[in-house]
Nucleic acid binder design. Sequence first.
DNA 1: TCTGACCTGCGA
DNA 2: TCGCAGGTCAGA
Length: 268
Amino acid sequence: MPELPEVETIRRQLLPLCRDQVIDAVTVKTPYLIKNCTAAVFCDALQGRRVRHLDRIGKYLIWECEGAYPVFHLGMTGIFLQDRRESRYPQHIHVEIGFESGQALYFQDMRKFGKIWLYPSYPEIPTLGTDPITGRITPAQLLSWLQRRKTTLKQFLMNQTPIAGIGNIYASEILFESSLSPYRKTDEVTAAEAQRLQRAIGRILNDAIERFGTTYSAYRTVNGQSGENQNFLKVYQREGQPCVSCGEAIIKTVMGSRSTFYCPRCQK
DNA sequence: TCTGACCTGCGA
DNA sequence: TCGCAGGTCAGA
């Protein structure tokens, strides 16, 4: 599910709902989603804390409370809802955060691939690279990262260590936008191509944020609505349909056991 | 570097 | 009934 644009959409919508709110009670119904402490410790640690801010690095959502930093990774199907009645899968609401105001937020995750951690201070996530929206990635920096690796562009974009936040949908869309084949070897990319790729990363992700993310199945915004970006995808899930640029049929292939879509004529 | 496992719902 | 799905990680 949620890649960077979906997590950022959720962050932006959650922030006004929880900023400066004091947590009254936390209920955890699926304890194994919490990875570095027990559910009891998690709930106790958050009770009475005031939420100061929500931050995001890549696909990780970081709650900044006073003295406690719960971190959520939404996996494939994790979402936050402000109204339980908006849930299509109420049996999959795993965490409920109630505030002293009487309001509440609900973490739902149909496939339970989500993960939650609790930290006493702002967390360091060592395997996480630069966030392409909040961090600055120059074409020269990107070219340097590409030249140091021997992999394909698709797998480079999917790896969260150099750049954090790109997943399967946006990797295909970014490569189409930059006219680069998903099979291209990273160490063969030229400076001009790295510049195209750097611009495409920013454009594709920012456009998707403006459209509240991409909904295919479980992803919904905090108020339960679908995103809009699925209506603007140019290659993802368009196998056999004509390329919007040249008319050639879009190809679906599998790379690293993940579906990959590209135009064989436009992307070299 | 690659594959399978984790888990559930949906569509063919 | 089976294959597939937006992610990540352990193990081969």
